[in-house]
């Protein structure tokens, strides 16, 4: 094919670019200002919209025939679509917002096409179809990128959370501290159990303080995890001192019917520490021999 049947689209995009860009931005900003006030940088969006339209024109210029080729993430055009989708995902936009972005452009372009080509309905139909087809593919692409980005963010977060979730601290010779913060689920329970038992063996810990000040809800499932770790720790020769159960928590636990009779429990980490030191025959004293 020598003549490019889609060149008029490219021409229109080039000639009307400023107007299209303005209308598009107006429409999209009106929607986003409600839902994402403060998150959208108008200049940034404007720059992106401009680039997007430029690439769209280039695409139609270099492309002829009816069905546009596949849009891959490697094409310059695909790259822009990905870039904006990834950015939206990182800023916490919903996938629908990015779709909205493309849909808005579609509406604006449709208006322009209708105005310019109303004399030649056959051409108009072709242009509209090709344009729609193209933007639908871009929508799909941005959606895919959005999901991928979100998944990566979530994976990163859960990785970094599990990294920092269960430190085991050697408080004093043979005394360990396991401060627990946050929701205790099966995965975390398994993780801190393994690490604690290892640490008990390595440091020959006689006493382990488990501080639960930061555990929001103490239900039977959490209790079951605790009972297991306590039993295992005691098999290895470490006594358990549990600290930080709140007054409400204590009331709830007894009502639930959970019984921690085989451990020492103290309300605060401070008294738990004193108790733990006592168990290994130490105590904290003022320098100079006066008892605190």
């Amino acid at each position: 094919m020598t003549t490019n049947s889609l060149a008029p689209i490219a021409n229109l995009l080039q000639q009307h670019r400023v107007a299209i860009c303005d209308e598009w931005l107006n429409d999209i900003m009106r929607i986003w200002e409600h839902s994402h006030a403060g998150l959208v940088d108008k200049e940034e969006v404007s720059r992106q919209a401009n680039d997007f339209l430029k690439e769209l024109a280039v695409f139609f210029n270099s492309h002829s025939g009816e069905a546009p080729a596949e849009i891959s993430t490697n094409s310059p055009f695909g790259k822009i679509a990905c870039e904006l989708s990834i950015e939206r995902a990182k800023k916490g936009f919903k996938p629908a917002d990015t779709a909205q972005y493309i849909i808005t452009l579609k509406n604006v372009l449709t208006r322009h096409f209708l105005r310019t080509y109303s004399e030649t309905p056959v051409d108009l139909a072709l242009y509209l179809r090709v344009m729609n087809d193209m933007l639908d593919r871009i929508s799909l692409l941005t959606f895919e990128m959005y999901v991928e980005t979100r998944e990566r963010i979530i994976a990163q977060q859960s990785l970094s959370l599990s990294e920092l979730s269960t430190p085991i601290i050697l408080l004093w010779n043979n005394v360990l501290l396991l401060p627990l913060v946050g929701v205790i689920d099966t995965v975390r329970a398994r993780q801190f159990t393994e690490r604690l038992l290892e640490a008990i063996t390595r440091y020959e810990a006689n006493v382990t303080i488990i501080d639960v000040t930061g555990v929001p809800v103490f239900d039977t499932s959490v209790a079951r995890h605790f009972m297991k770790v306590i039993d295992a720790a005691q098999l290895l020769g470490s006594r358990i001192v549990m600290t930080g159960i709140s007054p409400e928590g204590a009331q709830t636990l007894t009502k639930l019917g959970i019984n921690f009779s085989n451990i020492i429990s103290r309300a605060t980490l401070r008294s738990g520490l004193a108790e733990a030191l006592l168990l290994v025959g130490r105590r904290i004293e003022l320098i100079g021999g006066v008892r605190p």
């Binding site: 709140s246 409400e248 009502k255």
Partner: peptide
């Protein structure tokens, strides 16, 4: 205290 009881019950 009531909130804690409730949260635990919902959790169960």
């Amino acid at each position: 205290a009531d909130q804690t009881r409730l949260a635990t019950a919902v959790s169960e």
